[in-house]
Design a protein around this nucleic acid. Sequence first.
DNA 1: TGCAAAATCATCCGAAAGGGTGACGACATC
DNA 2: GATGTCGTCACCCTTTCGGATGATTTTGCA
Lengths: 160, 160
Amino acid sequence: MKRHVLIFGIVGGLLIATLQYTEYRFVVIEHSVELYGALVAILFAAFGIWLGLRITRRRETIRETVVVREVLVPAKVPAEARALEPFAPNTARQQTLGITARELEILTLVARGFSNREIATQLFVSENTVKTHCARAYDKLGAARRTQAVQRGKELGLLP
Amino acid sequence: MKRHVLIFGIVGGLLIATLQYTEYRFVVIEHSVELYGALVAILFAAFGIWLGLRITRRRETIRETVVVREVLVPAKVPAEARALEPFAPNTARQQTLGITARELEILTLVARGFSNREIATQLFVSENTVKTHCARAYDKLGAARRTQAVQRGKELGLLP
DNA sequence: TGCAAAATCATCCGAAAGGGTGACGACATC
DNA sequence: GATGTCGTCACCCTTTCGGATGATTTTGCA
């Protein structure tokens, strides 16, 4: 958290300096102040949004309400019909295999056909992190490839 | 989500206009551009953070733990559902997509988690051939990766 | 508050996968 | 016989994955 504020300040300062520098060099155009302000506004708004997402990303688990609901699910349903059913991963098996929630989360995205980079973008983490989670999940599932991990995950009731 | 972008634009425009107006009226001192930029930056950073919080806040709702009880359902989903044990691929869809039998055969092996080399060994063909079939299948399925192709194949009823 | 688990990120390297292109033979159809 | 489809294979190049390892930060809990 402290690091966020720090990089916020540093990046902000650098951005302002850069913008000022460029402005002093290219002030020949008209309305440069407006453009300058708009540029700063857009950049910092984007940065702020990113920061807001980043900060609050993990707070969701705090005030969650756990509701236990029982659902009757047909034992065997084809893939097309299964898409609508609420899927509940087999947490018992997940526990015994030692698969963490984050690993399972990434595994579901892998099963949906996303690349590591796409998953990293969606989850606001680096590609390396995704790869680490993947590797651990593969190891715990005894899989050598992502397709194999997906297959195993479906067999074990971990994935929809 | 669209509403957020809308109010973002409106408020942003108002802010810029206000800042320009006030600047033209009161800020005759030196370094007005720097102050102006810093002000805009801070305001928009705060606004961005607020927006980020607002966007993600409503996700902190209820997390329900669903307990699934498997139940044998008679014949709710008729034709495609019952032919599950010996899986019958959706040949109609296969035809319309122009997927050949060989491509589907290789696709099923891909879905089972085999590598191209393993598939080549099993089918007594070269790895290049497997890759060619894969590429054509991916193209016809609109997939960029093998996991995506598997996902699409299952959605379309081509794979078990 | 301190510790263990989990999550995050990085780097290196080799393997796997994917895109593009070209080619050749078998076979069916017209 | 010309045409088209399918299966087969090869080459080159780029991207993506995976394995191994080490490190730091965050979190949850006792």
